[in-house]
């Protein structure tokens, strides 16, 4: 398979120059250049709390975007992780008691090697890569996150999936004592997600164990989560304890809860609106009060690499 390198989208391609110039003018005029909510910020190493363990031996990846990532503060305080509550600040507020260590993952289904493996055994043979990806939420906001992880396909191949493995299913841990959101049946716990096997094997798809060079904060899906950058964020399941190779399309939580609103594929697509809001544009998080929405790109800007997976499919039907 020919893997194309990403077309680098500069931030200036996304936020029109007139917009950010206007923003600066407005701020200067108002004399507000130091105020909190109004200005974008950049994260330096010193901004990352020391309690997060640094990850060693991370290599750069050509798949990373050159866009400026959102500050650590945004990435770690603005989260959808319903296991800890449904507000954006709930995950950071309520995940303090969650224990991502020790951790093990069960691999089962249509593969030659199956069983339960410790987190350390799962990760041992792989080299960590930094993958700075755009993240587009189905709620029409977006961020840029410098993930650290491994290609999911490299990991899956170690378990030698058989020819019956048409899909890969993922499951989040159920631990209501540490995840207060699981006391209420908002979704049918455990949270479950799935990919077609070719999507799972695609080199852009990663299992992340960190961000900003440190281990994943609990609220971001510690210790192990999926990242599929061309799909809406809810596909990128967090705190994974089970990976199953299946022959049939697996159960997925959101499409089960609201089948008219969320589909199995959930590919970012500006032309297919959510029934209750438009997906044509998105709000970049962290750009402050004067940031306009920006146009959403087909497959979140990764069309060149992944559009081939969906040749001949009606994406409005298979949303």
């Amino acid at each position: 398979m020919l893997i194309k390198k990403p077309r680098n989208i500069k931030s200036s391609d996304i936020t029109p120059e007139s917009v950010y110039l206007n923003r600066r003018k407005l701020l200067q005029a108002a004399g507000l250049s130091g105020t909190a909510a109004l200005l974008p910020q950049v994260t330096r190493a010193a901004d990352i709390p020391a309690r997060y363990r640094k990850l060693e031996g991370i290599i750069k990846s050509p798949y990373s975007t050159s866009q400026e990532p959102n500050p650590f503060e945004d990435v770690s305080t603005y989260n959808n992780f319903y296991e800890f509550g449904t507000n954006k600040s709930d995950p950071v507020d309520n995940s303090g008691n969650f224990k991502p260590q020790p951790w093990s993952v069960t691999i089962d289904g249509a593969a030659e090697v199956t069983g339960t493996f410790s987190f350390e055994d799962i990760m041992a043979p792989h080299t960590l890569e930094e993958r700075t990806y755009r993240l587009r939420c189905v709620e029409a906001w977006s961020m840029v996150v410098p993930w650290v992880g491994i290609p999911l396909g490299d990991l899956l191949k170690r378990f030698k999936p058989t020819s019956n493995a048409k899909y890969v299913a993922f499951e989040t841990i159920v631990r209501p004592s540490e995840m207060p959101g699981q006391h209420r049946p908002i979704l049918d716990w455990p949270y479950r997600e799935g990919l077609r096997i070719d999507e799972a094997m695609h080199p852009l798809t990663i299992l992340a164990t960190g961000l900003y060079g440190v281990e994943l904060p609990n609220q971001n899906g510690a210790p192990l989560r999926l990242v599929v950058p061309w799909k809406y964020g809810f596909k990128s399941i967090k705190s994974i304890v089970r990976i199953s190779f299946t022959e049939t399309m697996p159960y997925t939580s959101w499409s089960d809860a609201l089948p008219g609103e969320y589909g199995f594929y959930a590919n970012v697509n500006p032309e297919v609106d959510h029934p209750r809001w438009s997906q044509a544009r998105e709000r970049p998080i962290g750009a402050g009060f004067f940031a306009s929405k920006i146009p959403t790109l087909m497959l979140n800007g990764y069309a060149e690499q992944v559009a081939g997976l969906y040749t001949g499919m009606d994406l409005a039907k298979n949303f």
Binding site: L32, T35, A36, A37, L38, N70, E73, D74, T77, Y78, K88, S89, W141, R283, I285, G286, G288, F289
Partner: peptide, 14 residues
């Protein structure tokens, strides 16, 4: 909005 008195609107002020 102006980040005064220790208050903040977070990552998505709008």
């Amino acid at each position: 909005v102006f980040g005064l008195a220790g208050l903040s609107l977070g990552a998505d002020p709008i």
